[in-house]
């Protein structure tokens, strides 16, 4: 029992990311307001970023920038165990940028929809479409 509890507690990052992701997914599907859906979409993307960054964590390691690096090649031997995994950070920089770009386009589309129907509530928009 204590084993299971400690596994669960030690891996809390994974549970947080799953919870966040499900909140986002629920919001995209269930919310009626188009902007709230966009917010849900952003939470969803952020959860994945948290997941990737969790992959990169390494106990007892520091940020992946070599120390005492100014000046010429006097670094000595670099030990991989001293620095966290840089790859997930690189990947998530890309994912963050993609998230911002998607958000921009989504907001632009929301503005267009608002100009068209004068509302952002999905049920009201669908009612207007049905009336046509």
């Amino acid at each position: 029992m204590a084993d299971i509890v400690s596994t669960v507690v030690d891996n809390y990052n994974y549970w947080i990311y799953i919870t966040l992701m499900m909140i986002g997914l629920y919001a995209i599907i269930a919310k009626n307001n188009l902007v709230k859906k966009i917010v849900g979409m952003n939470i969803f993307q952020t959860a994945i970023i948290l997941f990737y960054v969790s992959i990169g964590v390494k106990r007892g390691a520091t940020i992946p920038i070599l120390e005492h690096a100014h000046g010429s090649h006097g670094y000595g031997v670099v030990h991989a165990a001293e620095y966290v995994n840089p790859l997930p950070h690189v990947l998530m920089l890309t994912a963050i940028v993609v998230g911002v770009a998607t958000l921009g386009v989504a907001l632009a589309l929301a503005i267009k929809v608002y100009n068209e129907y004068n509302t952002l509530e999905e049920d009201e928009i669908l009612a207007q479409i049905r009336e046509e």
Binding site: I28, L34, K37, L109, A110, V113, Y117, I125, I129
Partner: peptide
């Protein structure tokens, strides 16, 4: 016309898919 609304729905679904 309805293009922007359908594109927005596509965006939600497409983003979920890509994620």
């Amino acid at each position: 016309g309805r293009g922007s609304l359908s594109a927005l729905n596509y965006l939600y679904m497409g983003t979920i898919g890509a994620c």
